[in-house]
Computed example of a mutant assay.
Amino acid sequence: MLSDADAAALYDLLNPWEPDRHAGDAFHHALVMGADSVLDVGCGTGAMLHRAREAGHRGRLVGLDPNRAALDRARRRTDVEWVAGSAADAAWDRAFDLAVMTGHAFQCLVSDQEVRASLTAIRTALRDGGRFAFETRHPQARAWDRWNAAEPTEVVDASGRTLRVLHRVESVHGDVVTFTETTHGPDGGVLRTDRCRLRFLDVPPLDDFLASAGLTVEARYGDWHHGPVTAASQEIVTVARRS
C-alpha cells in the first residue's frame, strides 16, 4: 500500500516543477518572482514556492493546502510559511500582491458554494489591485476522453520500485467529471486508488463567478504562450485583479 506520505512523494515524481522545461510552470514562476508577497492556494508539496526561494525571491511566500501529508513534505523548506486549509479558509485581509492556483487546482472547487467562498476569500487576501492567476482546462477540449485512452504512466520511486499510474473516468455529469487514479506496484497489484471530482467551467460562467467575487479579468489566454482563447484552446488561463 501507499501511505499519504508516499502519495505526496509520488506526486512530486509525476509532476516535477520545472520552469525551464514547462511553459505553464514558467508562466506562474515569472508572476511569482515579480510579486513582493505571494499566496499559493492549493500549494501541495510546495514545489513552486521552493523554486521561488531557490531563485532568489526575498519577499513573503505562503502556501495553503488542506492535504497534511503534502504540507509535511512542503515544510522541508522552513523559509516559507505553510498553512493547513482550503481556499475558502484563507483568512488574510489585504496581505498579498499575488495569489496563484496552479496544476488546475481551481477545478477541485466543484460546487457553486465552494467556488464563491473560495474566490471571495482569495479576493479578501489580496491588496487593492492585487492579482489572482490560475488555469482551468477548457471543457471544449474534453481532456477526460484522453484520460481513458492514455497508457499508464511509469515512474521509479525512492525505493527503486517501478510504479504504474492509471486514470479512469467514472462519470461525467454536466461540467463535473469524476475519475480515479490507481497506482500499481511492480507485480501489478493495486497499491492505492484515489477518487477525484473536477469541474470544467467554460468562460462565461467562470467570469460570472469572478465578477460576483469582485475580481476583474485583466488577461485571458488560451495557452501558456499568451495566445488568445480560440475554438481549439485546451486551457483557460486567467489573471484577475482585485477591483
Results as ranks from 00 to 15, higher is better:
182 T>F: 08
75 R>W: 02
211 A>H: 15
110 V>L: 07
91 A>W: 00
167 H>E: 07
67 N>D: 05
22 H>G: 03
206 L>T: 15
228 P>T: 09
220 R>F: 06
191 L>T: 02
127 R>L: 14
194 D>Y: 01
141 A>P: 03
39 L>N: 13
11 Y>A: 08
226 H>F: 06
141 A>Y: 00
191 L>Y: 05
34 G>Y: 06
45 T>Y: 02
47 A>R: 15
154 E>Y: 12
28 H>Q: 14
108 C>E: 07
33 M>V: 06
150 A>E: 00
74 A>E: 03
229 V>Y: 05
19 P>C: 13
201 L>N: 06
194 D>R: 08
112 D>Q: 07
238 T>N: 09
110 V>S: 03
35 A>V: 12
131 R>N: 07
173 H>D: 10
80 V>H: 04
197 R>I: 00
64 L>F: 08
208 D>I: 11
21 R>W: 03
124 T>G: 01
85 G>T: 08
205 P>S: 09
165 V>P: 10
17 W>S: 10
165 V>F: 05
115 V>Q: 01
114 E>F: 00
172 V>W: 10
207 D>K: 15
140 Q>C: 01
217 V>D: 13
115 V>T: 00
30 A>F: 01
241 R>F: 12
150 A>G: 11
131 R>H: 00
106 F>K: 05
51 R>E: 15
137 R>T: 01
65 D>K: 00
37 S>W: 14
111 S>D: 01
70 A>I: 05
43 C>Q: 11
183 T>M: 05
182 T>R: 10
154 E>L: 12
191 L>N: 05
195 R>W: 04
81 E>C: 08
119 L>F: 13
154 E>S: 12
27 F>S: 15
144 W>F: 00
66 P>N: 04
207 D>F: 15
181 E>H: 01
205 P>A: 04
56 G>H: 14
233 S>T: 13
75 R>H: 11
130 G>E: 14
141 A>S: 06
13 L>F: 10
121 A>L: 00
158 A>K: 01
90 A>S: 12
124 T>F: 02
109 L>M: 04
13 L>K: 13
203 V>T: 14
106 F>D: 04
236 I>R: 10
191 L>P: 12
15 N>Q: 12
193 T>Q: 14
18 E>Q: 13
194 D>N: 05
137 R>D: 02
73 R>C: 05
162 T>K: 15
243 S>M: 11
12 D>A: 13
140 Q>K: 08
195 R>L: 03
242 R>C: 11
218 E>Q: 13
235 E>I: 10
82 W>P: 03
227 G>E: 15
37 S>Q: 14
33 M>I: 05
37 S>D: 15
76 R>Q: 11
20 D>H: 10
183 T>A: 08
216 T>Y: 02
217 V>Y: 09
23 A>M: 12
232 A>R: 14
93 D>T: 04
214 G>F: 10
19 P>T: 00
179 F>L: 07
171 S>W: 08
171 S>Q: 15
96 F>W: 03
160 G>T: 12
52 A>S: 11
221 Y>V: 14
53 R>Q: 11
240 A>P: 05
